[in-house]
Amino acid sequence: MARDVQITFDCADPAGLAAFWAEALGYQLQAPPGGYESWEQALEAMGVPPEGRNDASGLVDPEGSRPRLFFQRVPEGKQAKNRVHLDVRAAPGTEGETRMAALEAEAERLVAHGATRLRRFEPEPPLGTGHIVMADPEGNEFCLD
């Protein structure tokens, strides 16, 4: 039986973190429900008070093939290293210095959008192709692979 997958992020600022990941992955904000031109209009009609309008945010792949991303506000901050993380495939099909140059360029672009660079792992053939460990604006680790 086929199943859909949604990736959920617990966070302090759903709209802000969603904006980062939309930029990182080429996703877009999920459209508001039918009959509404904006989420602000929909939330107002649903009676959601202003202080609750950044409690959640959803992103979708414009092509419709990758999983939906959901961001939900939680009261506690990040406590420890992620047990699961995303690998952002920023240089598929490349090797060596070409690969690492592409990863460095993507790391620089994401730092400009609020990411933090944590560590670089050099290629170690035959199986280690090299990658860069990053953190999103709320400290969630991910790899540029």
Rank of each mutant, 00 (worst) to 15 (best):
A2R: 14
D4A: 15
V5Y: 00
Q6M: 11
I7S: 11
I7H: 03
T8N: 10
T8G: 12
T8P: 00
F9Q: 04
F9M: 00
C11D: 02
A12R: 14
D13F: 04
P14Y: 07
A15W: 00
A15C: 06
G16N: 04
L17C: 03
A19L: 09
A19M: 02
A19Y: 01
F20C: 01
W21E: 04
A22C: 08
E23R: 12
A24N: 08
A24Q: 00
L25K: 01
G26R: 03
G26E: 09
G26A: 07
G26W: 15
Y27I: 03
Q30G: 02
P32K: 02
P32I: 00
P33I: 07
G34M: 05
G35N: 02
S38Q: 04
Q41A: 15
A42Y: 07
L43C: 04
E44M: 10
E44P: 04
M46L: 13
P49L: 02
P49M: 03
E51L: 12
E51Q: 15
G52K: 14
R53T: 09
R53E: 07
N54K: 06
N54C: 10
N54W: 05
D55V: 03
D55T: 03
A56L: 12
S57F: 04
S57K: 11
G58L: 15
G58N: 04
G58W: 11
L59K: 06
V60D: 08
V60H: 04
D61H: 05
P62F: 13
E63P: 01
E63Y: 08
G64P: 03
R66C: 13
P67K: 02
R68Q: 12
L69W: 07
L69H: 00
Q72D: 14
R73G: 05
E76T: 15
G77S: 14
G77N: 11
Q79I: 08
A80Y: 15
K81A: 14
V84C: 07
H85G: 13
H85T: 11
H85A: 13
D87F: 06
D87S: 08
V88W: 02
R89M: 15
A90T: 05
A90I: 05
A90L: 06
A91L: 12
A91W: 04
P92K: 09
G93D: 08
T94Y: 11
E95K: 13
G96V: 11
G96R: 05
G96T: 11
T98W: 10
A101S: 15
A102M: 12
A102D: 01
L103T: 02
E104C: 02
A107S: 14
E108T: 15
E108W: 03
L110D: 05
L110R: 06
L110Q: 09
L110C: 05
H113G: 01
G114R: 00
G114W: 01
G114P: 06
T116D: 02
T116Q: 15
L118A: 10
L118S: 08
E122G: 01
E122C: 01
P123K: 08
E124D: 13
P125R: 06
P125A: 06
P126R: 10
P126E: 13
T129E: 15
T129W: 03
H131C: 09
I132T: 03
M134V: 00
M134K: 04
A135N: 01
D136A: 06
P137C: 08
E138Q: 10
E138H: 01
N140Y: 09
E141M: 08
E141A: 06
F142E: 08
C143D: 11
C143F: 05
L144H: 08
